[in-house]
Design a protein around this nucleic acid. Structure first.
Lengths: 352, 352
DNA sequence: ATTAGCACTCAAGAGAAGTGAGTGCTAACA
DNA sequence: TGTTAGCACTCACTTCTCTTGAGTGCTAAT
């Protein structure tokens, strides 16, 4: 798909991107010619740079400034480093170790993942909590709380749990609840929650007979609860370290947008099945992200994709590092969660 | 306790504080003399300002600038507006309405409270989720999840619930869990959770006999869970709107500190029983808050204080508004939560 | 006791000049 | 023909000086 650049142009382009990622300042020909890996005179480099500009890989803020990479250049760059990106064994080990220290609650592991992700990359990280849609219902309890409310506790076969408050209509007694929950266990256990939600809950409504109407609302909010998605965001403040956000009002609008929370749906949009996606600058729909890059990767529990995580940084982010860290983090989180949820006594990547 | 300033000085001081809160710029004598509520010549005002400076209520950034209020001045100011601060009925109604729209989960109500708090004040808000310490245990369920883990669900007599994952040592069967939970229900129900945690859980350990050691860990993490406190923070980005934080590095360190989360303990420190506290500038221990003011108020469920909320803004925050909003918000949240938890079918301020 | 008048201070803004990193083009060179 | 040295040119940035104006304190008059 790409007009292949000759080796020399490639080298120069890569050098420019590398340098710009580091310094955020336009790169000039003399700077490049001083590098060890480029043995050309400034003049020659200028000629090549001129070509690269014409081809759309470089941009010039103004005549007398150096060049900065265009988004097209980043794209090419990313394609190239994609496979190369890998952490050293030490770093990978560090991540795995740290993640396994916190093996109590799923929520804590997610939080720690987000923390490490932003701690290592120095960018902003978002980690989605595992959703339950594809998990199979193992058990449901309806625990009466007051006369007007009950707690529904879902346990899935992957060991994930979720509880939500239901408001119980007057007229439904504890006895009813007990019957309802055993009916649910009989009918729904073993099915994927997404099926429970879409097809089985409505069916169930028919079956309960007289109280059908009163119970409808409860089933509805149960269904809503299954959809509920939650996120951990860490390191938003990191963005203030980059000259891209030295303008306070820009920083402000970025942070506000993050806080609004609508970003998440976009950023972590499944891309169902795709391992990793890289969105560079304008490739992001959200205007607030148009001079950011977002790299997203999914994670799994027992082979099943249950959530994703992302790193958001300026377009000139250190793609190689971020890609490498994300790969490793996804592996580690997948294995830790699988260990916790499927096989809690020991930590392995066993499937039940 | 205070050397009473004469009426004129008071007026001038109040005018200066008012003006400075609005503009964040040093206030000069001419500006003041133009105000309708002050009928004095600039020169006279200068004399008074000179006195006020000597008394420590005003500061001068440099010779040829106006004056800015000292923290001592804010203290005095706050003392004066404390009772006066009150929302109009419309505003109060608006808050109550909005809060009651979201009556499903406690978590949502807390989140909405934080949102409104920062939305109305334009500062940063922190709202603590209600803690359970003083609630009385009504019921506890231990639900087996996998062979190695179980979910403990606490239900209190106030209707609050909490669930936490426990890792179950090998050798403890579902039967054991069932016995344990009925033992717990028999022994612990009706006691305050703080007592359950401090005295009853350890006692229980003796009673379970042979498995005492294996179960100890579970009881331990149950106890930890009761202690767990959680917060909603909203509007951190608002701070970037104020010239106080136009310096990016200052903004950065503030935001980082917020994200670290240690602030919360300090900010929401109970002050058990105290309704409202105002900490101005250096009165805050945390260095990152030393040019902020923090106003904290507690809220209740059924008369019992169960959490608090705070607004953080620059020292020149609009104290009157913040105090008023917090008062109202505390009332509203208390009544909504009491309604939800104690008497879920209708929304009143009834006690069970 | 208050105020008008005046000299003084000082931060902030507007130009003006200098600096330096960068470019593109041309001509010489291997 | 591809590479490089040389040179004139561009333009953001820094530094400096100058001006402006909001503010002060002090003194003398009301």
């Amino acid at each position: 798909m790409t007009q292949l650049l000759d080796v020399r142009k490639m080298n120069i382009l890569r050098a420019i991107v590398d340098d710009y990622i580091l310094t955020a300042a336009p790169v000039g020909s003399r700077t490049l010619s001083k590098r060890e890996d480029i043995e050309l005179s400034p003049a020659t480099i200028r000629n090549e740079m001129s070509d690269l500009t014409e081809l759309g890989f470089l941009e010039q803020p103004h005549t007398s400034a150096g060049r900065i990479p265009s988004e097209k250049a980043y794209r090419l760059y990313v394609t190239n480093i994609m496979d190369r990106a890998k952490l050293t064994d030490d770093e990978a080990e560090y991540i795995r170790q740290h993640l396994q220290k916190r093996v109590s609650e799923v929520g804590d592991v997610i939080k720690e993942t987000a923390r490490m992700l932003s701690g290592i990359t120095k960018y902003t990280s978002i980690v989605q909590k595992p959703h339950l849609k594809n998990a199979r219902l193992k058990h449901i309890s309806l625990i009466p709380v007051t006369q007007g409310s009950a707690l529904a506790v879902l346990v899935t076969n992957s060991g994930a749990t979720n509880s939500t408050m239901l408001s119980v209509p007057t007229g439904i007694t504890a006895g009813h609840l007990e019957k309802l929950s055993s009916l649910m266990n009989a009918r729904l256990a073993g099915y994927r929650l997404v099926d429970v939600q879409k097809t089985l809950l409505p069916l169930l409504r028919e079956e309960v007979g007289e109280q059908a109407d009163s119970i409808a609302g409860m089933l509805e909010s149960l269904s809503e609860d299954i959809d509920r998605q939650d996120y951990e965001v860490v390191g938003a403040a990191n963005m203030l370290d980059y000259p891209e956000y030295s303008d306070v009002s820009k920083a402000r609008s970025f942070l506000s947008e993050l806080e609004r929370g609508e970003i998440f749906k976009e950023v972590l949009s499944d891309g169902s099945g795709v391992e990793m996606t890289v969105r560079i600058g304008k490739e992001n729909d959200n205007p607030e992200l148009q001079d950011c890059s977002v790299i997203t990767i999914s994670y799994r529990v027992g082979g099943e994709q249950v959530g994703s995580m992302a790193v958001i940084g300026p377009t000139r982010m250190d793609y190689e590092k971020v890609v490498a860290v994300l790969k490793c983090m996804s592996e580690s989180l997948s294995s830790v969660l699988s260990g916790m949820l499927l096989n809690p006594s020991e930590s392995g990547s066993d499937e039940s």
